[in-house]
């Protein structure tokens, strides 16, 4: 009976993942390996960026709006924020579908999202990355790693650590069913600062982590150390988010750019 419960939980979480996220690893890999009829538009310099802005991301950049005359770095930063806000919205819906999450104290739900969404976002971002670049605009564009590196500082420091993490993370060859459980485990984490009902969340976390462990053994029988490797990735993601939050604070201080109110809420008093 316990195994049946675990399988049900794994299935519920996987279904919630497929339902709530616009992009997933299977979709991203199909595009990145050239198996789609129309390949993504490659953004590799200022000219191709402008072309992409006129077509793919016109809505995001607001081509007729306030950002039209701003420098490329600011426009790209704004696009990153739009994508982050969308993913946070998707992650919130996903979290609500994880059994037990919605019955938690509302303050604890807020805390789990505040600390979990960026870790989850960077774990999932790896699915859309390869060593040369990143899928953007729902997979219709591909922005190269070299172009992102060539931007002026501090914007050039934004994505490179995510690529470095992604290359190591992608080497683990997780599929969407593994990622669904991994993302759920990131969100339902009992040691976030300020949690009220720690015991309740720890129980949830324990069942998700147990399901993840069994799922990995069944889904990757040749990689017996995959589970401990993934636990290490949780620590790496925490570090990645800490550094990212510091960089965003620096950009906010030194650059004339706005930060979306939702992201401001998340970053405020984070670490």
């Amino acid at each position: 009976p316990q195994l049946a419960d675990q399988k049900t939980l794994a299935k519920q979480i996987y279904e919630a993942y497929l339902k709530n996220f616009n992009m997933n690893k299977a979709k991203a890999r199909t595009i990145l390996t050239g198996k789609t009829s129309t390949p993504p538009f490659v953004i590799h310099d200022m000219e191709t960026l402008q072309l992409a802005e006129q077509t793919l991301v016109a809505k995001m950049v607001g081509s007729a709006g306030a950002l039209k005359d701003r420098e490329a770095e600011v426009r790209i930063f704004h696009c990153c924020q739009c994508t982050s806000v969308e993913t946070v919205t998707e992650l919130t819906e996903f979290a609500k579908s994880v059994p037990g999450f919605s019955s938690l104290d509302l303050n604890d739900q807020v805390t789990l999202l505040k600390y979990g969404v960026y870790e989850a976002l960077f774990a999932m971002l790896a699915s859309s990355m390869n060593k040369d670049g990143l899928l953007v605009a729902y997979g219709s564009g591909f922005i190269t790693r070299e172009f992102l590196k060539s931007l002026r500082r501090p914007f050039s420091d934004m994505m490179e650590p995510k690529f470095q993490f992604a290359m190591k993370f992608n080497a683990l060859e997780l599929d969407d069913s593994d990622l669904a459980l991994f993302v759920a485990a990131i969100i339902c984490c009992g040691d976030r600062p300020g949690l009220v009902n720690v015991a309740h969340i720890e129980r949830m976390q324990e069942s998700i982590v147990q399901v993840l462990q069994h799922h990995l053994l069944a889904n990757h029988p040749d990689d017996t150390f995959l589970f401990p490797k993934l636990l290490q990735k949780l620590a790496d993601l925490r570090q990645l988010v800490t550094e990212h939050a510091q960089l965003v604070q620096e950009i906010k201080k030194t650059e004339d750019t706005s930060l979306h109110p939702l992201l401001q809420e998340i970053y405020r008093d984070m670490y």
């Binding site: 704004h78 924020q81 739009c82 806000v85 969308e86 946070v88 919205t89 919130t92 819906e93 609500k96 509302l106 303050n107 739900q109 807020v110 805390t111 999202l113 505040k114 300020g194 979306h260 109110p261 939702l262 809420e265 998340i266 405020r268 008093d269």
Partner: peptide
Amino acid sequence: LKEKHKILHQLLQNSTSPVDL
């Protein structure tokens, strides 16, 4: 905490909520 995280709180309470920049 809810007061400091009004949008997160709103996202948690509503089924779908467009968050415009």
